[in-house]
């Protein structure tokens, strides 16, 4: 019984929203809009668990005096400070809090975000090196085509040989397009099959214990 109700819910809702896709009527649209809003409300409660987990994770680290445990104080302090400033900053008399909240976002969180993004460029170089080292035929194909595309989008490529931008464009339009399309077919079928398995209750991992 504990598992039958969730299974029934998935089946009924799955069929309902499959059918809804084909019905453009007012009622159907209203049901869709309501479901969207409801899923936002329902999902909002999951964040309580998520934050509970994070706090628990770091409290445990502190309690057990794990290596580098003092960093957990940083996380917990930053979490509560940011949430406190953001929520109470809405109150007019406490607007200085929202100013702090904005500053923390702009000058602390955002720069770290951009820095992590920027690190990607370094990793690109090491990934290219790794591709070069892998001596399989496939890896070489990847590397050569990647190299042509890189040359194709900078003026230096055309300076080396006038046809490079054309070849780069051809690679994008023909083999690249064909491969992506072929992959998408497979992905589409795989996704549809996974959804179907969930709705029909064949895939029950999410219920745990194989649904027994």
């Amino acid at each position: 019984m504990k598992r039958q109700i969730p299974l029934m819910l998935v089946l009924v809702l799955g069929i309902l929203f499959f059918v809804q896709f084909f019905v453009p009527s007012q009622l159907s649209m209203e049901i869709y809009q309501m479901a969207l809003q409801w899923s936002i409300v329902i999902g909002a409660f999951a964040i309580v668990l998520a934050i509970g987990s994070l706090v628990n994770h770091h409290t445990l680290k502190i309690k057990r005096r794990k290596e580098h445990f003092w960093n957990s104080y940083v996380t917990l302090f930053a979490l509560f400070a940011m949430a406190f400033l953001g929520i109470f900053g809405r109150i007019e008399s406490l607007s200085f809090m929202s100013a702090w909240f904005r500053k923390l976002f702009l000058y602390v969180q955002a720069p770290m975000d951009s820095a992590m993004f920027a690190i990607l460029a370094f990793y690109m170089a090491s990934a290219a090196y790794r591709a070069f080292r892998a001596r399989s035929k496939e890896a070489m194909l990847l590397l050569i085509s990647g190299f042509i595309i890189m040359l194709g989008v900078v003026p230096f490529g055309a300076y080396l040989w006038g046809r490079i931008p054309d070849i780069a464009e051809w690679i994008m339009m023909v083999p690249n397009m064909a491969a992506k399309r072929g992959i998408l077919f497979g992905v589409g079928l795989g996704m549809t099959a996974t959804s179907l398995k969930i709705i029909l209750g064949i895939e029950r991992n999410w219920l745990g214990g194989g649904g027994k």
Binding site: R3, P6, L9, L16, I42, M191, W206
Partner: peptide, 24 residues
């Protein structure tokens, strides 16, 4: 499992025809 089932039913039901349209 109830809220999880509701989320799964809603999104998977819609996903089937949407995916057939876009990816096939």
């Amino acid at each position: 499992l109830i809220p999880i089932a509701i989320s799964l039913g809603f999104w998977n039901g819609m996903s089937i025809p949407l995916t057939i349209e876009a990816d096939v």
